[in-house]
Design a protein around this nucleic acid. Structure first.
Length: 785
DNA sequence: GATATGTTTTTTTTT
DNA sequence: AAAACATATC
């Protein structure tokens, strides 16, 4: 345990002020790498050490991961008291409060949380039931409208009365959205379900409709802290303001330059609102960057300077010198991936970095695929974050749906998923009839499933099957009072035959599905034996830990994965997901006009500035090495597109960057494909690549930086020569695990063999040398055993 | 009602 | 290029 004075000595002046000024409203403007997390953790520890009860501190963060991390660091200073902190994401903290108070709003205490897939599926069925054009009323579009409204605290009734919103919908040809919103909300209510946005909207409703609840919470939480304040939306701000009204010990931490969630309703206006609402607030600016070297910090400043809308702030660093930013021009998306993978391989060796110190950051999730392939070819371990989380995989979600129905049988979306999974003869026709009956009688779907006799014109056979299904669910529900989450889940898996079915499937995907369910069950088991959250006397404890488990996992994202097996891997994620993280070496890829900045953001200055802030966030993730790359051609929807270099590259000063490849902007359309100018070689190299699966390894990329000289490119290596060479007959049989002798590296063991025919490449481990990639057609290799 | 086959759409970012 | 979706066939 550390002493406070010792801690405070390690802080700079503004950091210290931000930690110790604990009375009244405080705004901390924290540039990237300025020790923000440190300040937040120390501030909370400082409060606890000054006799503030941890139960009375609410700290709201953006991700579960950052709150878990902070809690751990606080525990390191103050000990076990830290576990009593009310700390987590807005959504998880509010879900916990709502669970205790849900009955006041007419929701069950064990309400379900619908994920966006559930929401869209529900919208889809409502659109269908209403007989509306599903090309016009796309689930994603309708959902977005509803979600945006909720984030501005506009409920269905207010929406219908809001002239602006309704006329927007009319002019886009979707006049029925207000109606759909109401129907959607009713259906969620009947299902005992809230979506993510409801966790905010209903929380606000709770506080404004029930003064006693507000009073209780206001008095309880004497200190509030909000992280990533620039990414909060209006609903979040209003709730926080209500909660803080009694004591006004509210501390917000943020950086307007890193605001990247406006598309989700976040608004920098909250920073202005805060200044207006708390005129006596104290501001601390953290501008010293402890993370990145000089070139990176200088580049970041010159990027953000291009934005008109920003608070004046300049970050600076003591870490002088360092490497310049590398910019790679690549022939195609696959080339880009290969060059990045090669660079990682090379940089890891030269700079003695670990795989975990590398990150590949991109604008869209779809870009991950090519990097995945390239890294796999070089045997570089990687982990992709984002995309769909473990709990969203089909087989996992199907299984979880059983658990959801057991806890809350009114959960319509979960019920629809499992009613005929595994196949039990309740087909689409029956399901549609069930839904119609439920709507006609204004009852939850489950009510009809329980009493299929309430349906007319349905075959007796179907009714029997439905009855059997409901009996089975009831038998599972009967276990709730006496069995724990794991026992119930295991029993369901066996009883439904789900586990047997998956076990029998011996295809590659089938095995992975089986493993996923095993992993899910392990996770549930871990949860039941693990540390349970503490409950205050006035909180409602869940009837069964299964309900608490479901609520927890429904708010987990792929970012929250903390498995040890992922500790030693190259990380790949969108820039949005990288917020708050740092890496020794960062690759920002796909820097092309219409991709980054996104084509969707080209319409307004505001959107473009948000893209630029995103670029600022990307650049400032890097501690020492920053590499930018772009491709001249890229496949989109399976179609080849020509791309231009992103304007963002030009916003970094020449003295901070080094180009690899041609410096001038390329205009591919003007260059003959078969011409012999330098440009065409990029395409040629790509053509060769495709035709014969030519070598992936590029020798020592870092060797010759190209500045203004005649461009030499990195991929025009070994083309013609390669075509003719062939592998000696005994080497064709080379297998993983064989021992070989190399004329230079001596004895080694084959780690893997890749490629086909004459283009095989072996990764071989040589003692004292490490793993080398060797092309068999050129290598003088001798097989020993 | 379940399965095989052809057609259309998708990509911005996420708690 | 892949997934979701719609239609035809058993």
């Amino acid at each position: 345990m550390h002493e406070l004075s010792e801690i405070l000595d390690k802080l700079n002046e503004s950091q210290r002020g931000a930690v110790t000024h604990t009375n009244g409203p405080v705004m901390i403007i924290a540039g990237p790498g300025s020790g923000k997390t440190r300040v937040l953790t120390f501030r909370i520890a400082y409060l606890i050490k000054n006799n503030v009860d941890a139960f009375r501190i609410m700290a709201l963060t953006f991700t579960n991961k950052s709150s878990a991390e902070m809690r751990e660091r606080i525990a390191h200073i103050v000990g076990s008291e830290a576990r009593n902190l009310y700390m987590g994401t807005f959504h998880s903290v509010f879900a916990r409060i709502l669970r205790a108070e849900a009955h006041r709003l007419g929701y069950p205490n064990n309400f379900t949380i619908y994920d966006p897939d559930d929401c869209k599926s529900l919208i889809k069925s409502i659109v269908k039931e209403e007989g509306l054009n599903d090309k016009l009323y796309k689930p994603a579009t309708v959902f977005y409208r509803i979600s945006s409204a909720k984030n501005s605290l506009i409920d269905a009734k207010m929406y219908a009365q809001n002239v602006d919103l309704v006329s927007d919908d009319e002019s886009s040809g979707r006049p029925k959205i207000a109606e759909l919103y109401q129907k959607y909300q009713d259906r969620c209510f009947k299902s005992g379900a809230m979506d993510f946005d409801d966790l905010l909207l209903k929380m606000y409703e709770l506080l404004t409709k029930f003064p006693d609840v507000l009073y209780k919470l206001q008095n309880r939480f004497t200190h509030l802290l909000i992280d990533e304040f620039q990414d909060t939306n209006m609903a979040q701000y209003k709730i926080v303001k209500l909660l803080a009204a009694q004591h006004e010990n509210i501390c917000v931490v943020g950086d307007d330059a890193q605001s990247i969630y406006a598309f989700r309703g976040a608004t920098i206006e909250n920073i202005l609102n805060f200044e207006r609402d708390y005129p006596d607030m104290k501001v601390f600016k953290l501008e010293q960057n402890y993370r990145s070297t000089e070139h990176i910090v200088t580049a970041a400043n010159s990027i953000i300077k291009q934005n008109k809308n920003q608070l004046a702030k300049e970050i600076w660093t003591d870490l002088k010198g360092g490497e310049k930013i590398k910019v790679y021009k690549c022939a195609s998306d696959t080339d880009e991936a290969r060059i990045v993978a090669d660079s990682i391989f090379d940089q890891k060796m030269r700079q003695h970095l670990m795989h975990s110190e590398f990150a590949i950051l991109y604008r869209t999730n779809a870009q991950s695929r090519s990097f995945e392939e390239a890294l796999r070819k070089l045997n570089i371990p990687y982990k992709i974050y984002g995309g769909l989380s473990f709990y969203q995989r089909k087989e996992v979600k199907d299984f979880i749906s059983y658990l959801r129905v057991v806890v809350n049988p009114n959960d319509e979306e979960a019920l629809k998923r499992i009613i005929n999974y595994p196949v039990r003869g309740i087909g689409n026709t029956s399901i549609d009839r069930l839904i119609v009956a439920a709507n006609e009688q204004d009852k939850p779907l489950w009510h009809i499933v329980e009493h299929p006799e309430l349906m007319d014109d349905t075959q007796a056979r179907a009714k029997t099957l439905i009855k059997n299904f409901s009996m089975m669910i009831k038998s599972f529900r009967a276990m709730l009072p006496s069995k724990n989450a794991y026992e119930i889940a295991e029993y369901i898996g066996k009883q439904t035959g789900l586990i047997d079915d998956l076990f029998k499937d011996k295809t590659v995907e089938g095995i992975s599905r089986f493993e996923n369910i095993q992993e899910l069950l392990n996770g549930i088991k871990e949860y039941t034996v693990g540390e349970q959250p503490e409950y205050e006397e006035d909180e409602v404890k869940p009837e069964n830990d299964l309900a608490a488990y479901l609520q927890q996992i429904s708010l987990l994202t792929d970012m929250d994965d903390s498995k040890d097996e992922n500790k030693e891997k190259v990380k790949m994620m969108t820039i949005h997901a990288a917020k708050g993280l740092e890496f020794a070496s960062v690759f920002v890829v796909g820097l092309e006009e219409n991709l980054f900045p996104s084509i969707m953001a080209m319409n307004s200055r505001e959107d473009l500035e948000e893209e630029r802030r995103l670029f600022y966030v990307a650049v400032t993730r890097s501690k020492r090495f920053l590499t930018l790359s772009y491709a001249l051609t890229r496949y989109k929807f399976g179609q080849l597109n020509y791309c231009d270099q992103s304007r963002f590259i030009d916003e970094i000063a020449e003295e901070n960057k080094i180009f690899y490849g041609q410096k001038e902007k390329a205009k591919p359309e003007q260059t003959s494909f078969f011409g012999d100018d330098e440009n065409s070689k990029w395409y040629l190299s790509k053509t060769y690549q495709k035709k014969s699966e030519l070598p992936k390894s590029t020798p020592t990329i870092t060797s010759t930086p190209i500045t203004n000289e005649a461009p030499k490119n990195l991929t025009k290596i070994k083309t013609a020569a390669n075509a003719s060479a062939s592998i000696s007959s005994d080497l064709r049989e080379l297998q993983t695990g064989m021992k070989v002798k190399h004329e230079k590296f001596n004895e080694g063991k084959v780690v893997s063999v890749e490629g086909a025919n004459d283009n095989k490449i072996a990764s071989i481990y040589f003692d004292g040398v490490g793993v080398k990639k060797i092309m068999l057609k050129f290598a003088k290799l001798q097989i020993l055993e």
